[in-house]
Amino acid sequence: MNIQVWFRWLYAALWRIFSGGQPIMNLAQSEMKEYFLDFSVALTGFSKFNLLGTGQADLYYSTIEQNIGNELLQELLQTFHNLDLKAKSANDQSILDKGISFDILDSKKFGAIACNIIKLWYVATWYPIPQTGQDSNSQKPFIVSPQAYPEGLLWSAIGVNPPAAKAPGYGTWSEKPSVTLS
C-alpha cells in the first residue's frame, strides 16, 4: 500500500467515524450517477435533459472517478445531496445555492474538483488537480473523447456550432448565430 492510498483509506475511515455514522461508502452507482446529474445541473445551469442529451454523462462520471478516486467523488456527491435534501425539505433554494458556494466551491477539498466538473461539461476537457495527490506535472489536460468535444456546453451557451464539428449545413455560415441557454 503506497502512502497516498494509505492516506485515502485513513481519511475515509476517519470520515466515517466523525460524520455522525452517516455511511458514505455504500451508495449504489445508480444513486451516485443521479446525484452527479443533479449536481451538474446546479453547477452548469443546464437542465438534466440537456446534460443527458449530450450523451456524455456516463463518460464524464467515470473520468472524474478515475481521476479523483471513488471515495472522494462519493463524499462530494453526498455533500451536495445533503444540501439538496435540506433545501428541498425547507423549500428554500437559497440553502442549496449558498451551500454549493460555501461548502463546495469555496472548500479546499471540493472547490477544485467542482470547478473541474464545470470545465468538463463546458469544454469536455479534464484538467489535473494537484490536491488529488497525482503529480500535476505528469498529467496534462485532455479531451475525454472525440465525441465529447462537440458536445461541450460552451458551444450551445454561445450559440455557435463547435468548430470543425456539427456542421450546420451548406450556406448557413451567412446566418447570424442564435444564442440559447436552455
Binding site: N50, L52, G53, G55, K166, G169, Y170, G171, T172, E175
Partner: peptide
C-alpha cells in the same frame, strides 16, 4: 431551399438530444 435544408441539421441535434434521454 438551402437555408431550409440548413435547418434540417438543427432538427438532427434536437432529435439526438431526445434519443439520448431515458
Amino acid at each position: 431551399l438551402l437555408p431550409a435544408v440548413g435547418g434540417m441539421f438543427k432538427l438532427k441535434y434536437q432529435a439526438e438530444r431526445l434519443i439520448k434521454n431515458p
